[in-house]
Design a protein around this nucleic acid. Structure first.
Lengths: 248, 248
DNA sequence: CGAATCCTTGAACACCTTCAACAGGGGTGG
DNA sequence: CCACCCCTGTTGAAGGTGTTCAAGGATTCG
């Protein structure tokens, strides 16, 4: 399993609240204080679990919830009327899914679990009913959406300007950073997605992904054997990715 | 000039409100009714004008306003520590700029006018002070951000899956649609950006843009002479762009 | 009118894709 | 437990699409 979240009371009566969730610092409730947090807690449905390959939602499906990943990892994809899907993102615990559906009330993309995963369901409309979205909540929500927009711009730069090597370096460096934020090793982790998924996401053929990974190995930058990743030279990887080696 | 907005009272005492602005149906206040609209009107600063090449904001600049384009057109770009900027978008009247800055309170990208343009300045924090952002307002704001996220996903598909011809077809078809929404001709319009800008935005060399435009001309799909665009065969252009020919 | 910029067109080259064949793992069922 | 199969991943060779470099022509603006 890619990530196993240490839930404060995983053997309790599902008594987990946002307040005592290990993802508190990363997730939606970050920076939200009582009593707004209690309000949030009241409407969140916890722990819908998915098995590998199971769909959380499909394209065109009416929008009911924004989802927060709780454990595992989930990929989102945009359907293409011709040919295969375009993978639009890989989501780790504490990250939100379904933000693109708010506008039209319909999911533009689909979401599938890459491994056994669990999510929280946030009914946005319920929150509004409970006296309008609380100011702190809505501000946080806007911040998260703003961050997503910024992230998408970074992806645009990646796809417009970088070659295969730089894209994959950036991809690995980004994963490393996110694992670190979640209390895991940045140097060593497991990939829950296939080479094919990675290539699809980055606009590369799966063969190219394979070849570049081999080259990383030869150059002693990273050792990637099947699902397992070991980043031997994170500074050089960051330089390749087009980041300052010191940054983050 | 790319667009000249017919302001209801352009020779009046700057008495334009959101309610009587010709962009009402496209801009932030869409769907917002009195008295919330009056509240919005009270804090919006109108009509900051920019000349061609003038900066609206620069990267790293503290975030003060979200901007709504009122007339003209504005490009946004992400700085790259090595080499030239990456253009992240071209914005027409009624569209919002600066949404990516909400999260960190600093503009991640810069914005420059492509021609003589004017904008409205929306102080987000002021809105909150006036009794929290009104529910209808914040809902609308989230919708707009959601739409932006959806748009960015479309761009990701474009950059990952489409070749030069398809990218430029999609670019032209998208412009045509947006002009039509604004009451202008979808078949005939002017480009305010250079071939170089277009190529930068779409991840292509400017030479490629030029060559594909020539090919469009030969194939009787579009005639693009310098800044002027005439789309002779919008259905075929839409097919090339990977859209259903009927859709929008 | 001149200079700078933008646009166009050509030729060589680079990078990545495609096609193909093969190796390795994991799961299933005998 | 082994055999088998399917799926994923790896590696090689050929080919295509777009880039880069270069030069010439058009346009705009001071």
């Amino acid at each position: 399993m890619l990530i196993s979240v240490k839930e404060t009371s995983s053997h309790g009566l599902d008594a987990i609240t946002c307040e005592n969730c290990s993802l508190f610092q990363l997730c939606l409730p970050m920076g939200i204080a009582q009593p707004d947090l209690a309000l949030l807690d009241r409407v969140i449905k916890r722990r819908r679990t998915l098995r590998r390959g199971e769909a959380l939602f499909v394209p065109e499906q009416p929008f009911r919830y924004v989802y927060a990943v709780r454990s595992g990892s989930i990929k989102t994809y945009a359907p293409m009327h011709d040919g295969p899907h375009q993978i639009t993102g890989f989501h780790l615990p504490g990250e939100l899914l379904g933000l693109d559906a708010i506008n039209e009330g319909i999911h533009g993309c689909g979401a599938v679990a890459l491994e056994t995963s669990s999510v929280c369901e946030l009914p946005l409309d319920k929150l509004e009913e409970l006296g309008g979205i609380v100011t702190s909540m809505q501000r946080q929500m806007m911040r998260i959406m703003s961050r997503q927009i910024l992230h998408d711009q970074g992806l645009q730069v990646l796809l417009c300007r970088k070659n295969a090597e730089q894209r994959l370096a950036a991809f690995l460096a980004n994963l490393a950073m996110r694992f670190k934020q979640r209390g895991f090793s940045a140097q060593e982790f497991n990939l829950s997605m296939s080479r094919s998924d990675i290539g699809n996401y980055l606009g590369l053929a799966k063969e190219t992904v394979s070849r570049v990974f081999t080259r990383f190995h030869e150059d002693r930058i990273a050792v990637i054997t099947l699902k397992h990743v070991r980043l031997s030279d994170l500074p050089r990887l960051s330089v390749l990715a087009g980041l300052e080696p010191l940054a983050e």
